[in-house]
Design a binder for these strands. Structure first.
Length: 272
DNA sequence: AAGCCAATCAACCGCCAATAC
DNA sequence: CGTATTGGCGGTTGATTGGCT
């Protein structure tokens, strides 16, 4: 975990509080150019008076391309509610099934809106409970997969069969997934199409000799995809039905990229 | 217009697991 | 094997915003 010896690392007072546009720009520029092999070295090299954790958080929750901004859709609401009923407040796990949303965003949304909505619903169901005698706890586990996010959850989070009688999350909660998928630095922002095409390979972006050129991207993608498939195979799931949907969901961000300023970021920074 | 309150959201804090030394 | 360090996560805080009186 350690990036380099810290014996000579100067102890400096780290800045706290809101990030300025200038700090954002510095962090963005640095990570776009060099990536983030070691977060603790990012602020030093980027000329920021922040700690590595703060930089990481700012990048993940705000600056990272591919993030969705704005209101949650009904389908996203449904996904969060269902996943929360199954795995509770494992926000990072839930976020994996909502491309473009961060765990922090989902967590905030839960506390500010969904929790209250659920409480309201539980209250009204509590009244009807007296009539039909069904407990709210069991009814909350009667799951129906009504969208693709939940389909992928059912497929990728293990070979569990969610039924009223056979609902066990013990292994699931006990053993966090060791998938390498999330370690891929930039692959999650792009579909493979963008890196298969001549356009990218001929672009100034690739000529700039950045640390993530087309082939490296694909290598990283294929490696992590392989790792992911291994995970799935171990758990006895037919990966033919899993990988494509899962990876499409995780990687297809073109529609978001065009609306969140990433194009501007890319083209602006690299003068394409 | 001013004050109050609740909602929202960015960021921090503390803990833990993984890993390097 | 023990210790130090890092990255990641979930809980919490505090500043800001918007609505209401």
């Amino acid at each position: 975990m350690r990036c380099k010896p810290t014996v000579d690392k100067p102890k400096q007072k780290h800045k706290k509080g809101l990030w300025s546009p200038d700090e954002d720009q510095k962090l963005k520029d640095y990570i776009i150019t060099y990536g983030h092999v070691c977060w603790s070295s990012v602020p030093i090299n980027a000329g920021l008076k922040r700690n590595g954790k703060s930089c990481r958080l700012r990048w993940i929750n705000y600056l990272r391309p591919g993030l969705k901004r704005g209101a949650f859709s009904t389908e996203e609401d449904e996904t969060i509610l269902t996943l929360h009923s199954m795995i509770s407040s494992k926000w990072s796990r839930i976020a994996q099934h909502l491309p473009g949303r961060t765990d922090n965003e989902i967590k905030n949304y839960w506390h500010s809106y969904l929790k209250k909505r659920l409480a309201k619903k539980a209250k009204s169901e509590g009244q009807s409970q007296n009539i039909d005698g069904v407990s709210s706890s069991s009814s909350s586990l009667k799951l129906t997969w009504r969208n693709s996010s939940l389909d992928s959850f059912a497929q990728t989070e293990g070979s569990l069969v969610y039924t009223d009688q056979d609902f066990s999350l013990v292994d699931f909660l006990k053993e966090p997934r060791k998938s390498k998928f999330r370690k891929v630095l930039f692959a999650e922002w792009f579909s493979l199409d963008q890196f298969n095409g001549q356009d990218f390979q001929n672009s100034d972006l690739s000529k700039n000799n950045l640390c993530y050129n087309s082939s490296e991207f694909q290598d990283a993608f294929m490696m992590s995809k392989g790792a992911y498939e291994n995970d799935i195979n171990i758990q006895g799931i037919n990966n033919e039905t899993v990988d494509d949907d899962m990876f499409q969901a995780q990687l297809k961000f073109e529609d978001q990229l065009s609306t969140n300023g990433f194009e501007e970021l890319l083209y602006g920074d690299f003068n394409i």
